[in-house]
Design a protein around this nucleic acid. Structure first.
Length: 228
DNA sequence: AACCAGGACGTGA
DNA sequence: TCACGTCATGGT
């Protein structure tokens, strides 16, 4: 079987195992508690047009920075703090006192740098107005690296950019698709070469990889799961 | 009680 | 380029 078909087979298998993941998770803006709306898992019910407005886009962007090397549950607490400060808007976030912002970000870890990163991306978002940023422009923002840039493009702007994280490298080097020390772009190019250029597929595949890794790739030795 | 989490940056080879 | 130290809270 060709490499392309194998990667597609793995995708089908993961989808069949776990179902649609509905990323990117958005907060329940109407409700009062930090519970997410949508499907039973809390995420969007197969609605790939989300996010649908500027505020939701900005929420995805904040989350992509808050969750850097941090569990989503922790990032979510910080997001909820920001919402309670009415700071899920670039202007209001930039008006927060630094100490207030840091306290809100604290539960997500790395709060000193992430606070600055959030201010940086807020300024960038304001200057963008309603334009779609390029990958290069995003990478020029201090605090936005490869994965965060691709997450923003894929989940906030519906651009077909495959997101690679540590889990992706862990699983697919274990399965023999890539070397352990492959670069970000090597892995990204592999997926983009093998998969149809589809935003929903890119979105689901990355989310399914995370779900699978959480179950079977937390600690060594990794147990071989039959994915092909 | 170590170890890891949906990384990025600065530094020095 | 690339390996390594640093940043930090919260859950297992």
């Amino acid at each position: 079987m060709t490499e392309e078909n194998q990667l597609i087979q793995v995708y089908r298998k993961l989808y069949q195992l776990y179902g649609p993941q509905g990323w990117w998770p958005l907060m329940d803006w109407e409700g009062k508690n930090p519970r997410k709306s949508g499907s039973s898992r809390g995420y969007h019910p197969l609605n790939y047009s989300l996010p649908e407005n500027s505020r939701q886009r900005f929420e995805v962007i904040l989350g992509s920075i808050l969750t850097q090397n941090t569990a989503w549950t922790s990032a979510e607490k910080a997001l909820w703090n920001l919402k309670n400060l009415d700071a899920v808007h670039p202007q209001s976030l930039l008006q927060l006192e630094t100490e207030i912002l840091k306290e809100a970000v604290r539960p997500a870890g790395f709060f000193n740098q992430k606070s600055v990163y959030l201010q940086n991306i807020s300024r960038f978002f304001l200057e963008l107005e309603d334009n779609v940023p390029s990958r290069k422009e995003l990478l020029e923002v201090k605090g936005v690296g490869n994965e965060t840039a691709d997450s923003i493009l894929l989940y906030a702007y519906h651009q077909p950019q495959f997101v690679v994280d540590n889990y992706t490298k862990r699983i697919f080097s274990h399965l023999g698709f890539v070397k352990e020390n492959s670069s970000y772009s090597e892995v990204k190019d592999l997926f983009e070469r093998c998969l149809p250029r589809s935003v929903p597929i890119y979105q689901e595949y990355h989310a399914l990889i995370v779900e699978h890794a959480k179950r079977y790739y937390q600690k060594k030795p990794y147990t071989e799961i039959h994915l092909i």
